[in-house]
Design a protein around this nucleic acid. Structure first.
Length: 869
RNA sequence: GCGGACGUGGUGGAACUGGUAGACACACAAGACUUAAAAUCUUGAGGAGCUGAGCUCCGUGCGGGUUCGAGUCCCGCCGUCCGCACCA
């Protein structure tokens, strides 16, 4: 009497169509339910959906469906982060227009996402490269410009001297351009910036309010903003032979307490004083040029060897009479931070120490740990950055670091050559990109009027279609006519800005646009305010800093310009882990794909061979799925073979969602078997079920099953609320196991008792509802199979009977001296003395204590009792 | 270099606020069903020891510490991963 196998292919299409026909997931702004906005980071349309997307969107969908069942009016939209470099790279490589490439990819990926059965409101879909979207972004830019939040200044870019083009950091490989191989140079360009630093304090302080964000993300943002209290002060400078000059060197420090340990000063290669030196000295110019022959990324600057160039200047120590310090141009000093100049204290800063060792500069320890003798304390390979007392510092000796900082600050301010300053690591956001496939910056450059914003009535500034990619550089620059325009002010000949915006701009407000995706203005403030903030945002940890910080800035800027009234865009944030996979390396060193190899296992040793040739393959590390390692698994293959529910179930199983998940063939097979098992279980259980009301006083197995049903669903609800999907999955397994075990088995055709039948009936509904958000198609099919009315997706979450959630008795562990010796099953909340008595009466306890006296008994109610003897 | 995380059986992981480590699953083994295989069902299991089904010891990357009690807290290592402002 076995049922036919569950056929996901047919069922999934059917239910997806049903939901579409019913308009199930079309969200209305005027729905009476409490709003809940769940959003997953929208994808870049790279070509095909990858497993990371499947995981991300499955998680979001479970939340969305669950909240729906809980009666919320759920907004769950999807769109495309569609501008960016890969489209231009494809254009260059394959001679296909970025627009065509992008929209083709979107079409493919939309189909793939739809086959996952996601509860998305597709009527709100947009791509950031839609002119309807980016024209509103241009409006925002103009508003920000009016509000003083956008401005122009010079900044440094990676310049490829052969291709004559600006390179992204990822296009700089080992200091060379990826295409030309030329050594990259740093070059100054005038660029547009958003004044994110205007919100330094607010962006930092508000992190405290984001209590549904991971602690680590808040910490990362805090460190990124990098508020530090310190001092800005001046060194007097003298010439080489102590010849007086009127020059001063302004430095920033957070460690003014270590001023007596200062043994040199250093300035950034692009510091004005360095530039001045370069004009006097060819050697200095050469050194600066060498410094600029590297990428602009901080990582590159910091990991490179510390190098310096000594200037013909010395800095006068402010507190040591007659003492002067050498001044260097140093490649590890950043112009963008503080004053672009520092004093070096090698004893207490690792970078300074490395520099000092290299150039034979003195190392004077001025902070000594409490338990060390200042006369003996020396610095060897590691700078000392811990707490301690000041030494070798005259009037500061013996003070704490804090007191010494205060003392110096007071003296500098009194002497009028320094002041306390708060400094931030966060820099303004450079948004200019010298590329075609991005949102044009709506600005016109006029020789007589200067910078002229494009009048709002003239928006959009659309990207021209007729562009070529045969020459490196920005196609907008090469376009014969596009940039030529009349100046809106003087009607004279003028030129459009040909830079486009950083794609981070596109993703900094899309969540707001989803609330009114077809509106003429960027947002409809009332509607945006109604839906925002996003209640649950889900995406990769790689966006922990930039995307999220920029979005937080945009929210503030849009508030300032009247587009919404909101403090923070994302009330709840969850960062999910990556999907990773084993790698397979062939004998010749190249990689094999997972479907090219076959794995066998014996005695816990797994070996891999190439299916085609039987050649042995080395099983390598488990790594992030990537094209270069060829360890990718195409979601479409999985969806076709196993169906969406199996793929979704596997993605939710086992691994905690914030951690990486290893994709394995065995894992997906296991999920597949469970889908089939549920299908059979539902049919078997249905035979033994009834819809009769459940009697009030159950006992025995019927009560047992009912408890499990209610407890499981209560647990699944908590698990989903707290996004612990792997535990929800485990609870469904337990529940299904218990229901299976409750069914009459064997040759005995006898059926369950009437009261058991009604309990099974309830359990069956609970089970289907319990996994329905995770495997929605199977859920609907089962729901229909047990003859319930309507669609599962429209059913409210079952009502849990709280009285079934707790047992009257508990089993607690009994320890002697912290080691478990026995256990006790006692009444819940039993009196302490009675527990102590019962514990001491246990044979194992008596034996273990022997004739030692009992010194203490610790009772933790309903958990444990520990006898200390 | 700087910043952030993570590390538990053969494997993925569970363990709520310091209270019975290993739930649940995968893989494995044995058995049932089958001509056979697949599928399915049942049973078993952290490691070591004791001559018996109970008990002892060891066990959460390594080394210390706090505590009646540590996977959980603290200090120091080791390893792996993520971000570093023009990848998205």
């Amino acid at each position: 009497m076995s049922v036919e196998r569950y056929n996901p292919g047919a069922c999934e299409t059917k239910w997806q169509q049903t939901w579409t026909d019913h308009g199930t997931f079309q969200t209305r702004d005027d729905d009476p339910g409490e709003k809940y906005y769940v959003l997953e980071m929208f994808p870049y349309p790279s070509g095909r959906v990858h497993m990371g997307h499947v995981r991300n969107y499955t998680m979001g969908d479970v939340v969305a469906r669950f909240k729906r069942a809980r009666g919320f009016n759920v907004l769950h939209p999807m769109g495309w982060d569609a501008f960016g470099m890969p489209a231009e790279n494809a254009a260059m490589a394959n001679n296909i227009h970025p627009r065509e490439w992008t929209y083709d990819n979107i079409a493919t990926m939309r189909d793939q996402l739809k086959s996952m059965g996601l509860s998305l409101d597709w009527s709100r879909e947009f791509a950031t490269c839609d002119v309807e979207y980016y024209t509103r972004q241009q409006q925002l830019f103009l508003d920000f410009l009016d509000a003083g939040l956008a401005y122009r200044r010079k900044s440094t870019v990676n310049w490829d001297p052969v291709d004559h083009t600006v390179l992204a950091n990822e296009q700089v490989i080992d200091g060379k351009g990826w295409r030309s191989g030329a050594i990259v140079e740093q070059r100054d360009l005038t660029q547009w910036f958003f004044r994110i630093t205007a919100y330094n304090d607010d962006l930092l302080a508000s992190l405290d309010k984001l209590d549904r964000w991971p602690e680590k993300v808040r910490l990362m943002q805090q460190n990124w903003i990098g508020r530090s209290e310190g001092m800005t002060f001046d060194f007097d400078l003298v010439g080489d032979n102590d010849a007086a000059t009127d020059q001063k060197l302004t430095v920033f420090t957070t460690r003014q307490d270590t001023i007596f340990g200062a043994t040199f000063c250093a300035i950034a290669p692009d510091h004005p004083m360095a530039k001045a030196a370069a004009e006097q000295s060819p050697e200095a110019a050469e050194f600066i040029a060498a410094c600029q022959q590297s990428g602009t990324s901080e990582e590159e600057l910091q990991t490179g060897e510390k190098r310096g160039f000594k200037l013909d200047l010395r800095a006068v120590h402010p507190f040591l009479e007659g003492q002067t310090l050498p001044v260097y141009i140093a490649n590890f000093v950043l112009m963008g931070y503080g004053e672009g100049a520092i004093f070096g204290c090698p004893g207490h800063d690792q970078r300074d120490l490395e520099f000092a060792r290299k150039y034979n500069i003195d190392v004077i320890p001025v902070v000594v740990p409490e338990n060390e003798d200042p006369a003996e304390f020396e610095i060897s390979d590691d700078a000392y950055v811990g707490p301690g007392r000041i030494a070798n510092s005259q009037f500061l000796d013996g003070k704490t670091i804090e007191d010494a900082k205060e003392d110096i600050a007071g003296r500098m301010e009194a002497g009028n050559f320094g002041k306390r300053t708060v400094n931030y690591r966060l820099r303004d956001w450079g948004i200019s990109r010298q590329r075609y496939w991005g949102c044009p910056i709506p600005i016109i450059h006029c020789d007589s009027c200067g910078i002229v914003p494009v009048p709002r009535a003239n928006l959009p500034v659309s990207l021209p279609d007729d562009v070529t990619f045969d020459v490196p550089g920005n196609p907008l620059d090469h376009h014969p006519t596009w940039a030529n325009v009349q100046c809106p002010t003087c009607q004279g000949e003028a030129r459009r800005e040909t830079d486009t915006m950083d794609t981070f701009v596109d993703s900094s407000w899309y969540f707001a646009r989803f609330t009114a995706p077809h509106a003429d203005a960027p947002t409809v403030p009332e509607i945006a305010n109604q839906w925002l903030p996003v209640d649950q945002y889900i995406g990769g940890i790689e966006h922990a800093i930039l995307h999220l910080l920029y979005s937080r800035f945009f929210t503030r800027a849009m508030k300032a310009t009247g587009h919404l009234d909101l403090d923070e865009p994302f009330a709840g944030l969850f960062t999910q882990g990556m999907v990773i996979h084993e790698t397979y390396r062939k004998l010749d060193g190249t990689w094999a794909t997972p479907d090219e190899v076959s794995i066998t296992e014996s005695d816990n040793v797994r070996t891999a061979t190439l299916i085609e040739t039987d050649e042995k393959v080395e099983i390598g590390n488990v790594e992030k799925m990537s094209k270069s390692r060829r360890n990718t698994v195409d979601p479409s293959d999985i969806l076709e073979t196993y169906g969406a529910d199996t793929a979704r179930w596997f993605m939710l199983s086992d691994s905690p969602p914030e951690r990486d998940i290893i994709w394995t063939e065995a894992g997906i097979e296991g999920a597949w078997r469970f889908v089939q098992r549920l299908w059979r279980l539902v049919h078997d259980a249905k035979e033994q079920s009834s819809n009769d009301p459940i009697s009030g006083n159950l006992d025995g197995p019927a009560l047992g099953l009912r408890k499990i049903a209610h407890r499981s669903l209560a647990a699944v609800a908590t698990d989903i609320e707290s996004l612990r999907f792997n535990r929800a999955v485990a609870h469904i397994y337990e529940f299904a196991n218990a229901l299976s075990a409750s069914l009459p088995t064997g040759d005995n055709p006898a059926s369950a008792t009437p009261e058991m039948k009604s309990v099974i009936g309830e359990a069956l509904q609970f089970l289907i509802q319990g996994f329905g958000a995770m495997m929605p198609h199977l859920g609907e099919e089962c729901w229909q199979a047990i003859g319930s009315e309507g669609l599962l997706v429209d059913r409210p979450w079952p009502k849990i009977d709280q009285s079934l959630l707790q047992d009257d008795t508990v089993t607690i562990a009994v320890q002697v001296n912290g080691k478990r010796r026995d256990e006790l099953t006692i009444a819940r909340d039993m009196a302490k003395q009675d527990i102590e008595k019962a514990a001491l009466a246990l044979d194992n306890v008596i034996r273990d204590i022997g004739d030692r006296p009992v010194r203490k008994i610790i009772v933790v109610p309903n958990r444990i009792v520990n006898v200390v003897a």
